[in-house]
Design a protein around this nucleic acid. Structure first.
Length: 470
RNA sequence: GGUCCCGUCGUCUAGCCCGGUUAGGACACCGGCCUCUCAAGUCGGCGGCGGGGGUUCAAAUCCCCCCGGGACCA
């Protein structure tokens, strides 16, 4: 039975890189009908917060990453780590070290000169007596002979010279266990079969393998996924802009789009770009994960998001739009908006909006008549000669017995015929009158959505405005 | 500094294991078509094997060296 885990530390948001690691783990579990376990690595109490845990869980739910076990918390497992550390000491595989920071400094210098690596020389290995006034750390007895060889499911065979290693600390002098120790204890005790994580941990693996063996556990299979880089090819971080999953939700991205995008960053299946979750579960394998780091490309995410918006269930998208209309301060109370009508808004705008937030702003004119008109538009389209056209259209609309797409077609046809003009001559002036802008969905849509009376009002108002220009 | 990992269009990538393709797709960009604007759609264009040596009839692909980037250990 495949068992994998995602183990974030709750010291901030769930960021893009962590989310992708979680997704790969989740897909691997689902593909292999295994278990996906969530573990919170909160041993760093000074930097871990409850708020952060809540946010990470929320981000995972938003992405649709459900877990089968957990969330476990390392702070609740301290007793286990203590017990395992003591066991190592009892078995002579670990020892108390009383060296002071000053001594360590000197030792490292010496070792660096001797073998090129600034490491601990293991001098406390055979110490029998404690030292007065020094609280000891616990160090693990590392085998520095030969090399550690393992087969990484993504990177292939990794050979690492053990001479690089030293007796690293597994429990600090304040009694708290270190990362490399707890991660091994947890993964072993939780029965993790595959450790899928960022390749920044690749160099930690040899020492962890030694720990597994010393503790008497079989090491799991490892798969190190390359990191996500910013446009400047350095590790993606805050200074590259929005990097938290929740920030993308706030910006009006769809979870399906972010999910799809993140998977394709480093994983591929031939030329295919769009994948449903079901397809991904079916197709995902670690062999198809690339070895090289990937640069985060916001434009492609935007394209994918737009694609998902165009194919999203209209009722769901309209609910999201309602949410953003409120959040963006475009309407006071979105619950008052007629849902049927709002769905029509979605259909009219989704072709031309890349995010839900953008859509909210694009359709804002429907909720509030324009207070001003686009400056260039006024110069180009609000010419005196369009006044009679607009007046005619307003009048025709006013007198229309019904206000449908067909009726609007008829109205425009009659007006165009009467003046012997093309639609081009009035389309932009009408658009500017209704929306205040030169860009919008088609005339039918904006007129229909704005409504008969409001349309007449806006066109008449535009006529007054043009006249006032003199 | 030592060690480990990585290197195909600007970006994400297919192709590499198992040598023979006009090196394929996608985003972005540019242009045509469509058209009431903007999009969408559609057609086309631009653009790449980090460098150098080998091996071979033939190298993105196999071997060696170098260079570049990243990570880990302090």
């Amino acid at each position: 039975m495949v068992r994998v885990r995602f183990a974030p530390s709750p010291t901030g948001h769930l960021h893009i890189g962590g989310a992708r690691t979680a997704i790969f783990n989740w897909l691997f579990a689902r593909h292999n009908k295994g278990k996906f376990i969530l573990r919170i690595e909160d041993t760093d109490r000074s930097r871990s917060t409850e708020e952060s845990i809540r946010e990470i869980l929320e981000a995972m739910r938003w992405l649709g990453l459900d877990w089968d076990e957990g969330p476990y918390r390392q702070t609740e497992r301290m007793e286990i780590y203590r017990r395992e550390a003591e066991r190592l000491i009892r078995e002579g595989k670990a020892y108390y070290c009383y060296c002071t920071p000053e001594e360590l400094e000197v030792i490292r210098e010496e070792m660096k000169k001797r073998c090129g690596v600034p490491k601990y020389d293991g001098r406390c290995r055979n110490r029998k007596e404690p030292r007065e006034g020094v609280r000891p750390v616990i160090r693990f007895k590392v085998d520095t002979e030969g090399e550690t060889v393992f087969h990484d499911l993504i990177k292939g065979e990794i050979r690492y010279p053990n001479s690089q290693l030293d007796d690293f600390i597994i429990v600090r002098s304040d009694g708290t266990p270190t990362y490399n120790f707890v991660v091994v204890v947890d993964d072993a005790l939780m029965g993790i079969t595959h450790v899928i994580r960022g390749d920044d941990h690749l160099n930690n693996t040899p020492k962890q393998i030694q720990l597994y063996r010393a503790l008497g556990y079989e090491p799991p299979k490892f798969a190190h996924v390359p990191m996500i880089l910013g446009p400047d090819r350095t590790k993606l971080s805050k200074r590259h802009g929005a990097t938290s999953v929740m920030a993308y939700r706030e910006e009006g991205y769809l979870p399906e789009a972010l999910f799809n995008f993140l998977v394709r960053l480093g994983w591929s299946h031939g030329d295919q770009e769009i994948f449903s979750k079901e397809e991904l579960i079916e197709l995902f394998t670690l062999e198809a994960v690339g070895k090289s780091p990937a640069v985060f490309n916001p434009e492609k995410l935007l394209w994918l998001n737009h694609h998902y918006m165009k194919t999203y269930p209209v009722d769901k998208l309209s609910e999201l739009l309602a949410e953003f209309l409120e959040k963006e301060g475009i309407v006071e109370d979105a619950s008052k908006i007629d849902r049927k009508w709002l769905e029509e808004v979605v259909v009219a705008f989704r072709e031309r909006s890349k995010t839900v937030k953008e859509m909210a702003h694009h359709c804002a004119f429907l909720f509030k008549a324009p207070e001003s008109y686009d400056e260039d538009g006024v110069k180009k389209f609000f010419k005196p000669e369009v006044v009679p056209y607009l007046e005619a259209i307003a009048e025709e609309i006013e007198n229309a017995s019904q206000f449908t797409k067909e009726a609007i077609d008829e109205i425009f046809k009659r007006v165009l015929d009467r003046f012997g003009i093309k639609l081009k001559a009035v389309a932009q002036p009408v658009r500017l009158a209704i929306t205040g802008r030169t860009v919008s969905p088609g005339l039918h849509e904006i007129l229909l959505l704005t409504g008969k009376e409001e349309s007449v009002r806006r066109i008449k108002k535009a006529v007054e405005f043009i006249k006032s220009l003199g």
